[in-house]
Amino acid sequence: MSLHNLTPPVLDVRNLSKVFPIGSNLLGTKPAQMLQAVSDVSFRVAQGETFGLVGESGCGKSTLGRCILRLIDPTQGEVLLAGTDITHLNAAEMRPLRQDLQIVFQDPMSSLHPGMTIRRILAEGLRLLKLDAQTEAARIAELISLVQLPADVADRYPHELSGGQRQRIGIARAISVNPKVIVLDEPVSALDVSIQAGLLNLLRSLQERLNIAYVFIAHDLSVVRYVSDRIGVMYLGRIVETGRASDLFDNPRHPYTQALLSAIPLADPRAERKRARTVLEGDLPSPLNPPSGCSFRTRCPRARPLCAAERPLLEDTAHAVACHFPDPAGTEATARATPSTLQTGEGA
C-alpha cells in the first residue's frame, strides 16, 4: 500500500538539523547560545503523497519547512528533490529548481504583496516559466478557476478578498509552476472552520489532479489526519513518532502522541464526558536548554532513569517511534479512547 516503498521519493529529507545562534559575546565572534530548532530529522515523501508534520508551537516544524525550501539554510543534513541534493546549491543554481518546490504560508494576508493585484501576484510566480503575455494571461485565468474563484478576482487587491479567497490565491501561486512538492505551512489555521473545509477539499482535489506531493505542517491533529497519508509527530525539534496516518492515530505508540490525541477536544459532548484523558504536566522545555536524554521525559508519565541518561533513537520501521518504553506496534491494540464522532446530526 505504502507508495514510498515502491516509487523513489520525490522529496527525501536526510538527517536535517538547524541551529540558530542566539545573541553574541561582546566581540560578536561567538554566539552566546545555540538554539537547536531542528535535530536530525529524516523523512521521505512519494509523488502524490501527503506527509503531515504535527507538533506544538516551538517544535521546529516551520523551521523545518523553510529549510526544505532553502529559505533558511540547514546547518546539517541534506534535502534531495527528485534525487538531486539541493542543500549545497547556490542561489543561482537553486533558482530553476524552485519550480519544483513551492510553499503556501499560514497568513494569507501577509503572504501576498499588498500593492499588487492578484494578476500581478500570480504573474510574479509565473516568471520562472518565461511565458509570453498571451499564454501567461491564459494561465492566470486557468489558475484562478482551478482554485474555484470567480475570474474577476484577477484585478482585485489582496485586501479586497476574504481570508479563504486569499489563501486560494496563495495555493494558485504555489501550483502555478507545476511543482512536484508543496510545503503547506499551517495553510488553514488562520481560517474559520466553515472556510477551512473548502480549502482542505481543494487541496485534496488538486493533489489528485496534479499528482503533487504535500508536506503539510499543522498543529491541528484532526486537520493533519484528514489530509495526510503519513505523519511525523515533532517534539522539540525531533520526530518522535512517524507512520501511516491510520496506524499513528489508531495505535499511537509514543506517550507524547497519545497525550496529543487525548488533548483534542471532540465536537461530541457524550464522548467528551466519557473520555479519560492524559493531561500533560508542565510546559514545553526551552529549546535553548533541552533536557538530557529524551527531550519529552520532563513531561512524560512513563519517564524512568534511562530516559534522562540516553536519548532514544527513532526506529527504522514503517511505524517508528523514538521512545525507550513505547507501546507495541501492531493492529491489535486499537482499543484506545478515540471515541466515535457524531454522525453529523443526520438523526443520530
Binding site: S194, A197, L200, L221, S222, F249, L266, D268, T341
Partner: peptide, 15 residues
C-alpha cells in the same frame, strides 16, 4: 465542516 478523526476518506462539507 469540521474534520474529525473519523472523517478520513470522506470529503468535508464546507459552507
Amino acid at each position: 465542516a469540521m474534520p474529525s478523526l473519523e472523517s478520513v476518506g470522506t470529503l468535508l462539507t464546507p459552507i
